[in-house]
Amino acid sequence: MHPQKKSSIKWPDILSPLITPAAAFISLVLIITAVSSNPLNTLYIFLTSPISNNFYLGNMLNYAGLLIISASGISLVFKAGMFNLGGEGQIYSGVFTATAVSIALSSYSPFLAIAGAITAGSLTGAAMGTVSGYLKMKWNTNDLITSFLLSAAVIHIVNYLITGPMGDPASYLITTREIPQALRLKQFLPPSKLNISFIAAIIIAVIYYIYLYRTASGLKLRTSGKSRLFAIYSGVRTEYFVTIPFLVSGLLNGLTGSFASLGTYYMCAYNCTGGVGWSAIAVSLIGRNHPLLIIPAALFISWMESGLSGIVLYSGFPFELSPILQAFVFFFITAKFFKKEGYGDRRHF
């Protein structure tokens, strides 16, 4: 109602972002204590194994990098007031296209092959995103549903391609052929998979932040998403901020897939990206769709997944329990234990 003073300190404001990770952590400790014969050791391994050696540290960072790129794309569409539920298929098709193109171009120079693979992988994702964005703009077709359906269909098509026409008959796995050594992204911390994609991820997040909060176009996108009528009234071509965010979002997911192919999997195996797209949506939401908060959120999720595999390997923690543990962290991570007044609470005034 009236201008607010900035000075007054409110404890709930300070505590609430801290209390939810704390609650998630406590629930984690409780489950570990209940199940594990040596809870302290298990907990220690959970917390430290992701950084215990170059292999785990590198892989943890590498996975976080992939999550950052994909989550940036997901968050862009959220910011534009829509929902890209097709990350999973966009990433998977990116992995497939990048793998196929790099193998096809392997007789040319490595630079050309890698550049071609990344471009092709990104464009595949972009094409899928564009379909959802264009249908939304043209006929107001529900974006959440089109992106999901297209993604689900494409996953089956890729599965078909890697079982049949593009499959590697020599492998006992359902997969394409492997990408030749020369075309794989250089490992920074061997034997881990950490490569240039992590640096690219940080750069993308920073560029995305600058775009969203420092440029006129970013403000137009956010306003189109939040207050569409006001954006139209202000002379913004809101239709651009429907198709283009979806295109870029698909592109970033395709790029995630390309990096995963050239730097992590070195092939496109059946269901290899299983869950990356979902985790990226979680990362975006946990980071409140903020480009810079996405970075710690991705590190958190990556650390958790790495720690879980650590305790399964080294402390005899039953591997079946790790999804349950993960579920509880997800339950707690966006929970709010203090009531804070926001715009939504007062809308009826």
Binding site: R214, T215, A216, S217, L219, K220, T223, K226, S227, L229, F230, A231, I232, Y233, S234, G235, Y343
Partner: peptide, 28 residues
Amino acid sequence: GRGTSLTGTVENNLAFTDIDSFSENGFI
């Protein structure tokens, strides 16, 4: 509805309709 973005800041509501003149090379 048309005239404002209630969730936006006061200054962005003031500047938004003419945001390009508050920007240089696309940067605000």
